[in-house]
Design a protein around this nucleic acid. Structure first.
Lengths: 279, 279
DNA sequence: TCCCTTTGTTGTCACACTGACGATAAAGCG
DNA sequence: CGCTTTATCGTCAGTGTGACAACAAAGGGA
């Protein structure tokens, strides 16, 4: 619909700023019943050696969502699955010692994927439990306080701690009123798998009986496959997959879609919502 | 915490894009029991003569929220009141015929304010009913279909129609679980004033008796002043003001704050939420 | 002055949803 | 074959909700 050429100086009023733009990705997954975030160790200044969200500069003629997927692929070595959406824009002042930089943060919710290789300017990507990284910010109290503390107070580069907090809060909120929890699961999953996702993201324990009633009762959420699990301990569980989003736009309700982002794999609105406890 | 100098070419990797960045503002108010948006008529190409959201290029050493307030002031002639928050970032491709431009959209919820003068590059700002501007996008059906249609199909410049739709949807959603409806009202208001805000934004009719029960029952929402209205027709109504936000951060719940944005006048989370009907 | 209209506020009631928890079903394991 | 483990169904009291009756408190006109 329009040309994709470089902006010419004549297009922009004199005095307007031309800003370097980066994308940073809060990639979340559920691993060992705990919420984890993908972090890289910075190999260049500033913040060399510190942990940071994967990300980097947007290239010319590149869309924001493309840039996020590309940076993620470059720094993990794999083409990442999952649901990607824009989170919020930070800056341009007071966040990078090199000068004004605008960062468009994105949020990725995905089943756990293996990290293959260390990128060019980052010393390896790895999953880190978010609980240890958000001790001071207005996070949840946490289910249990371990005595043998790990790397509790490790600080992230730039303003990435705040971006992480915003991303986690967005994920927690979205589980309430959207079907996005399935983005953390394999294509087929049990109600218990889904419940463990909610428990890990919210940091609470949920009653399996009440959760099953609400999850299967919500319209447009789950679709039984007919198959069941086998081989594990205990009674086999029915397998479900995420329900396909409704074809036409719902009249009264929002669609919860980001048309600019990647074609969403798990969208739609949850009705009735699954609210967080302790209201 | 850092220097505010211009980015030097050496700071940015070769190949990274320097992008012009604009802010656009979806300024919403309730006027005559209908949701209105502030639009300007463009005085320069592209889209000269078309209606557009107020906005413009970010200046160097300027924060995003500051730029939004400044552009609003330049194009309306008044220092705008109300709650300002970041909405979403659009672009950089396919939205401006002059080339790639990043737009960080903002949302302003405010009581109606008079527009004073036409800005330098905009031919006058004015309030426009949103209902006429969002006929095709997944908007609500609308309370009644007038026969004598006004400027129903008028198209907005750039991708501003989509930004407007996103802003309206954000406002509709936020009324459910936040105390932001008071941002549309004068400092002191009645329950009926507040109900008319909800009815205008959601495009529905609400039962005054049930609404009164829920609004006064929600914690951290309303604070009675003790005074009542007088002079109008009917029984006088009690006056309220928005409750002050809680001092410390709530442990379990998000604060709903945007620390980068202007010091919010009306924040906090609504408990229990006031849900939109027709679930 | 006395209705009458208008608007705000309190109450009532049936229904749906929720959390707590008992009971049952269906596997593997010794 | 009981025992453990996990999944699933039922029950029941408490609570929020929509629909609606009833009452309260002003102004306006005959």
């Amino acid at each position: 619909m329009t040309t994709n050429r470089e902006p010419r100086p004549g297009d922009v009023p004199p005095g307007a700023a031309l800003l370097p733009v980066t994308v940073d990705v809060v990639a979340l997954t559920v691993r060992d019943d705990a919420l984890h975030v993908l972090l890289v160790e910075r190999g260049v200044e500033p913040f060399r050696g510190a942990l940071a969200l994967p990300g980097g500069f947007v290239l010319p003629d590149e869309r924001l969502g493309e840039a996020a997927r590309r940076e993620l692929a470059e720094e993990t070595g794999v083409r990442t699955p999952g649901h990607l959406e824009q989170l919020r824009t930070y800056g341009p002042l007071g966040r990078d010692p090199r000068g004004p930089v605008l960062s468009v943060a994105h949020l990725l919710l995905a089943p756990e994927f293996g990290v293959v290789h260390a990128g060019s300017d980052a010393g390896g990507a790895a999953w880190h439990p978010v609980e240890h990284l958000l001790r001071d910010a207005a996070g949840h109290p946490g289910p249990d306080e371990r005595t043998g503390a790990t790397v509790a107070g490790r600080r992230l580069a730039f303003d990435h701690e705040r971006i992480l907090a915003d991303g986690v809060e967005r994920a927690r909120a979205k589980l309430e009123y959207s079907a996005l929890a399935a983005a953390f699961c394999a294509p087929e999953f049990t109600i218990a798998d889904l419940r463990r996702v909610y428990e890990a993201v919210w940091g609470v324990r949920l009653d399996p009986r009440n959760f099953s009633r609400k999850a299967t009762g919500a319209v447009g959420f789950l679709e039984p496959t007919g198959a069941t699990t086998s081989g594990g301990t205990g009674r086999p569980a029915a397998l479900y997959r995420a329900a396909r989003p409704v074809p036409g736009p719902v009249p009264g309700r929002p669609h919860g879609q980001d048309p600019d982002d990647a074609p969403a794999s798990v969208p739609a609105v949850l009705d009735p919502p699954l609210m967080r406890p302790s209201r």
